[in-house]
Amino acid sequence: MYEPNVVGDWQEYEDEHAGLRVRVHGLEKAEPPRGRDDAAEGLIYFRFRVTIENRAAEHFGIHLEDGQIDIRVGSDGESAFLDWRNSQFIEGFDVYPLRRATAVLFAAAAEDGLSQVDIQTQLKVDDEWTDRYLWSGGIGLHEPVVGVCARADSAMESIAAQVTSFLESEAGPGAS
């Protein structure tokens, strides 16, 4: 069964894009830097980031534009307005080993739908489309709103948890 990522989780790519990983994070209410778009009248603006990290030995050419991101809000999954004029996309950027590239995106939606936000991305890497991945979260809640299928390891995002996971994987099965 496919399970969405929680906002803040890293999603690892496999096969020809092994070593590349992506995450949606920093979901919060925020006004856009260049002013509000007239199409967003009566809506609440929010901001989020999409970060791509390269842990492979070679570089990847990354492309992430407005047509590669879909934002749905509320329990009915209504489309949010993506403000492409205020957003900073990643267009044809080479991400070298041990480097990151981050897109900062602004969107707007009705305030009552912000407690449940789903963000789906599909990167274009070296002129090839990658798999689509979904992140779920919310704004204005003490705990993120996530569906029943939420990943159980989402709380394990601290540096200590990452180090522990790395050491366990390096030790191999059966090591104590």
Rank of each mutant, 00 (worst) to 15 (best):
V125N: 04
R85L: 05
R100Q: 13
S136E: 15
G26E: 11
L98F: 03
E28N: 05
L27C: 12
I69P: 02
V104P: 08
Y133H: 10
D127W: 13
A30E: 06
R55E: 07
D83Y: 00
Q68P: 08
R132M: 12
E91Q: 15
Q88K: 10
S79P: 04
D70A: 01
L64R: 02
S136N: 14
L82P: 02
G137S: 11
F46V: 15
E111R: 11
A39M: 08
D37C: 05
D131L: 13
V95I: 11
G67Q: 10
S79W: 04
T121W: 01
G138W: 05
E128A: 14
G61V: 07
E31W: 07
L64I: 13
E41G: 09
N54E: 12
A108R: 00
N86Q: 10
I90R: 01
E78V: 07
G92D: 13
A30R: 11
V104Y: 15
Y45K: 10
G138I: 10
I69C: 07
H59S: 13
Y45S: 09
L98G: 03
R49P: 00
D37S: 13
Y133G: 00
I62L: 15
S115A: 15
P97D: 07
L43H: 03
Q122M: 14
D118C: 06
Y133R: 08
D127Y: 15
Q88D: 09
D126I: 03
V50C: 15
F60D: 01
S115P: 07
G35H: 09
L64A: 09
D70M: 02
A108L: 05
I52A: 03
G42W: 02
D94H: 08
V24S: 13
R55Y: 06
P97Y: 04
P97Q: 08
F106Q: 00
D127M: 02
D118H: 11
V125Q: 02
I90M: 06
R55Q: 06
L43G: 01
S136I: 13
G26D: 11
V117M: 01
D126A: 07
F89E: 08
I62K: 07
